[in-house]
């Protein structure tokens, strides 16, 4: 039996997909933004020689990398208000959940990136009288970040996809907009196909950017080595 596609359902409701895509982008940008900052401190804490910093950071990262994001989102939405009295709206809950998850993943990206920089780099900075933070911000991180850009972009693409889970707690992102459209039109094939296409349009630039950055970084290394 040949399925009769009715793409007019999508064309007639295109703004729903735009609204959903914007919300997906908003969730991703906020979560990755918070995750980048929190992840940096967590990554540094994990590398600290001070146990009171290292051990809690290691547990935080372990716990929130192991708990599924969907469970975390549901827990924040349903349990957190009961336990703390803190009331967050659905978007705030989703951003909090995805940010926590992202910061745990990004902490590992930071940790691996920082550890990939030779210890002597920081030592030479310290030997000249630079403080730990001067050494970290001026010497180690600029080198580490170059190596971290591809994994950062991968994490961003992953979390853009994972933001679809926020639909479960009622955030009007891309998937929820489509689900609502399906409930009204009974055209799941068109709606879900359009959702997949929209995600592709959002994520492909990130994937291409990742490839471009990786190529550029490796080309620069080759150029520097070839032209002393």
């Amino acid at each position: 039996m040949a399925y009769q596609w009715q793409w007019s359902v999508i064309w007639d409701n295109w703004w729903l997909f735009v609204q959903g895509a914007l919300m997906t982008l908003f969730l991703t940008v906020c979560s990755i933004g918070i995750g980048l900052v929190a992840g940096l401190f967590l990554g540094l804490a994990k590398l600290s020689t001070r146990a009171w910093l290292r051990i809690p950071a290691a547990w935080f990262v372990e716990i929130f990398r192991d708990v599924p994001l969907l469970v975390l989102l549901l827990w924040i939405f349903y349990c957190l208000p009961i336990l703390t009295g803190l009331t967050l709206d659905i978007v705030e809950s989703a951003i909090l959940g995805i940010s926590i998850h992202a910061s745990a993943y990004l902490a590992e990206v930071y940790r691996a990136g920082i550890q990939s920089v030779d210890r002597g780099q920081m030592e030479s900075a310290r030997s000249l009288g630079m403080s730990f933070w001067q050494g970290m911000l001026r010497i180690v991180l600029p080198q580490a970040v170059r190596r971290m850009i591809p994994p950062f972009l991968n994490v961003t693409a992953d979390f853009m996809k994972a933001s679809s889970l926020a639909s479960v707690v009622g955030v009007w992102e891309l998937l929820r907009q489509a689900s609502n459209l399906i409930a009204n039109t009974w055209r799941p094939l068109e709606a879900y196909t359009a959702v997949a296409a929209t995600y592709l349009m959002l994520i492909l630039p990130v994937v291409w950017l990742t490839g471009f950055v990786e190529q550029r970084l490796s080309r620069r290394l080759v150029t520097r080595a070839a032209h002393p």
Binding site: Q121, S124, S127, R146
Partner: peptide, 11 residues
């Protein structure tokens, strides 16, 4: 202090 492996900052 000068180190065995120079430890110059390559960037």
């Amino acid at each position: 202090m000068v180190f065995q492996h120079f430890n110059l900052w390559p960037h």
